[in-house]
Simulated scan of single mutants.
Amino acid sequence: MRAFLTVFLALQFSALAAFAQVNIGFGDVAHDATQSIEVTADALTLNQETGNAVFTGNVIIVQGDLRIAAGEVTVFYNTEDGGAQDVSRVEATGGVLVTRGVDAAEGQSAAYEVASSLMTLSGGVLVTQGATAISGDRMVVNMATGDGTVEGRVRTVLQQGSD
């Protein structure tokens, strides 16, 4: 009976952890995806056919208080009527670190959909926010609302009260 109770409580805790409401958005305020995007890198290759840009070597992307660091970043553009180009998507690979203020997330790759403010990190994802950390295989977060999900063997510690 004691073994059954132990297993039952463990399953209940696992269910609680899986459905716990965790705000995984970054920073204290909503992200503004309309701000300009600054990119710094060791090299840039432009594809005239697609109009995409590939930045390599110590790439740092900054949009407002959002910062993305990676080994390589491809920037995809939408061409508007009249020839103007807007950044539509940013894909980062080679060990990615995303920060806003003291909040941080890391993974092997990331994709950022600029218009919708959706950030997807994949591959050994670790999110830290102060004393809280959550890890998994994949994270999708709406940078404007803070709503998000972490999938794939999710692990976190739920803090109780304050000492």
Rank of each mutant, 00 (worst) to 15 (best):
T132Y: 13
A69I: 11
T74K: 12
G124M: 05
L118Y: 01
S135W: 00
Q63M: 06
F55V: 11
R89E: 14
G136E: 03
E49P: 02
D65L: 05
G123H: 04
G27Q: 03
G101Q: 10
I68W: 03
T45Q: 12
S135D: 13
A30L: 00
N58G: 14
D86C: 00
D42C: 02
I37S: 13
R67A: 08
R89M: 14
A110V: 04
I61E: 10
I61G: 07
N78Q: 08
G94K: 08
G95H: 02
R89Y: 03
V87Y: 04
Y112E: 03
R67Q: 14
E38F: 09
G57M: 08
A104I: 00
D86Q: 10
G136L: 01
E80M: 06
A105M: 14
T132W: 08
V59T: 08
Y77K: 08
T132D: 14
D42I: 04
V87K: 07
S36M: 02
G51L: 04
A105S: 13
Q63C: 05
V114W: 06
I37C: 08
L126C: 02
S88H: 06
S36I: 04
V87W: 01
S109Y: 02
S36A: 14
E72G: 09
D86L: 09
T93A: 11
L121D: 10
L121F: 08
E106T: 13
A33T: 11
N52S: 15
A70Y: 12
A41G: 13
I61H: 00
L66T: 13
E113Y: 11
T128K: 10
V73Y: 07
S116Q: 00
L97N: 09
F55D: 12
G130F: 10
G83C: 01
R89I: 06
S116G: 01
G57S: 07
D32S: 09
H31N: 04
Q35H: 12
S88R: 08
Y112V: 07
M119H: 04
A43R: 15
E38I: 13
M119S: 07
S135T: 15
